[in-house]
Amino acid sequence: MAKILVVDDEEHIRLLYSEELRDAGYEVITAESGYKLLELIESEKPDLVVLDIKMVDYNGLDLLQDIRAKFYDLPVILSTAYDTFKEDTKSMAADFYVVKSFDLTELKKKIAMALEARESFE
């Protein structure tokens, strides 16, 4: 069972993602900020990270650079309410992005693709 780490400072998003992704057959862990995120990834070894771009204390795009530099092939899906982030070069380091929605069909599709891609490289 693939383990997914959801990083988002909004509690209702963490709850929604957790429930839906567990129902879809994934193991889910959550974090409410980017604090010690690299250590968390190191210890929990998730197969994929769903990362909020705009958190109160952290910029998801900066966290993404840190993750990519340390965990080259770890899939990261950016989750955002705004798509203006695409103008930022840093977003190129993400596997995919999804616009936040209560319908998680797109997120689940992107998760499946990212996990499949990673597996095919191993």
Binding site: D73, T89, A93, A117, S120
Partner: peptide
């Protein structure tokens, strides 16, 4: 033939806007 979809790379100097 084994590779599915695609993955990003590391970025360097990405703070440069």
């Amino acid at each position: 033939m084994r590779v599915k979809w695609s993955k990003p790379t590391i970025l360097f100097n990405a703070d440069l806007q």
